[in-house]
Simulated assay, not measured.
Amino acid sequence: MVFRLANRFTAGLSMAGALASAMLFMAPAKAQDSPMSLADRVARLEQQQQNQDQYRTNLLNQLQQMQSQMQNMQGQIEELQHQVQQLQDQNKAQYTDLDSRVGRLEKTASANPAPAASSNGPASSPAAASTAAANPAAPAAPSAPAESAAEKSAALNAYNVAFKSLKGGDYVSSSRGFREFIQKYPNDALTPNAFYWLGESYYATTNYQVAVEAFKHLLNQYPQSDKAPDATLKLGYSQLEMKQNDAGVATLKSVVAKYPNSNAAKLAQERLRRLSQQPSR
């Protein structure tokens, strides 16, 4: 019995010694591990902070680039809006006049199906009546020989063919047709109008230099033509398109001064207003 108790006591002492040894062995290890883990954590946090700082810097740079791009795009959008509005104004003025003139020609032709007997001779023919109705204000050359009824009819037909091409957007055919009309019928009452629509055909295809020549010829040779206001307006537009800004502005101002009550004057004023609002470059 005593021997058993002695053995148990010895075994307990051995176990306690083993536990104490184990604890003494582990304590230094923990004392060494704790500082290293803390250093790693600090290093990890510093690296994360650096990554976050770099991310913020990259994000800020991207935002600045996007703002710059948006500003450039805004300027391009405003320029495109200006060009679209300009084209709308030009098309409105052009096709309003086109439709009005075609309507008058068709109305006159239907109202005069046959030649009327008159002591005035050829001037009372249907072709002459159609010509006069189509262009009441355009003067004929004072020294030009009188056209026969057949010549007037042929001239009107050639003019209408070129005019139809213009209205259909076939500017190459219309410019060719109006050139041929001017060469063949230089003294016809519709010749001033043919010069105007010839200029329009070239303007529509951005051939501004040739358009300027056509408009100037009309204004120099037929200053009293009813197309003079529109020709002066399109002359100014063409000069602006050719970057002749001073000349273009002066021409538009002359439209307002010479033809204050015309639709061309309203369009010239609107264009001048936009030019004054554009930032100087």
Rank of each mutant, 00 (worst) to 15 (best):
227 K>V: 05
155 A>S: 13
272 L>Y: 03
156 L>R: 06
142 P>C: 01
61 N>A: 15
77 I>A: 06
235 L>M: 08
25 F>Q: 08
81 Q>R: 14
66 M>L: 15
217 H>G: 00
91 N>W: 04
127 A>I: 05
77 I>L: 11
131 T>F: 06
44 R>I: 08
69 Q>R: 11
158 A>Y: 04
279 P>V: 06
177 G>A: 08
76 Q>I: 13
152 K>H: 03
139 P>T: 07
238 S>P: 02
33 D>Y: 11
158 A>D: 13
216 K>Y: 02
200 E>I: 05
166 L>F: 15
77 I>N: 06
217 H>N: 10
130 S>V: 10
228 A>Q: 01
154 A>V: 02
109 A>L: 09
159 Y>P: 02
165 S>P: 00
52 Q>Y: 13
152 K>G: 15
170 D>S: 09
50 Q>W: 09
55 Y>V: 10
100 S>Q: 09
213 E>F: 07
264 A>V: 07
11 A>C: 06
121 G>M: 01
31 A>I: 14
42 V>R: 11
220 N>D: 14
71 Q>V: 08
30 K>V: 15
54 Q>E: 14
136 P>T: 04
142 P>K: 00
146 A>M: 09
245 N>C: 08
63 L>Q: 14
125 S>I: 00
108 T>A: 15
152 K>W: 04
196 Y>N: 03
259 Y>V: 09
217 H>P: 03
129 A>R: 14
260 P>E: 01
4 R>C: 04
133 A>F: 07
35 P>D: 03
267 L>E: 07
263 N>L: 11
11 A>W: 08
45 L>Q: 13
184 K>S: 15
30 K>C: 12
233 L>W: 03
248 G>N: 02
166 L>S: 06
246 D>C: 00
121 G>P: 08
250 A>F: 06
37 S>M: 15
89 D>W: 03
3 F>N: 13
68 S>V: 07
74 Q>Y: 09
132 A>D: 04
63 L>H: 07
181 F>T: 04
38 L>A: 13
21 S>R: 10
251 T>I: 05
25 F>W: 14
56 R>C: 04
149 A>L: 01
65 Q>N: 13
224 Q>F: 00
246 D>S: 11
184 K>H: 13
173 S>D: 02
44 R>H: 12
114 A>S: 13
70 M>W: 07
143 S>K: 05
134 A>H: 06
175 S>T: 08
156 L>A: 09
26 M>L: 15
112 N>C: 04
203 Y>N: 10
4 R>V: 06
158 A>E: 12
40 D>W: 12
36 M>R: 10
66 M>G: 10
118 S>Q: 06
71 Q>N: 13
278 Q>P: 00
243 K>S: 15
38 L>S: 08
275 L>P: 06
155 A>H: 06
228 A>C: 04
249 V>Y: 06
189 A>D: 00
96 T>F: 07
197 W>C: 00
24 L>P: 00
12 G>E: 11
165 S>G: 09
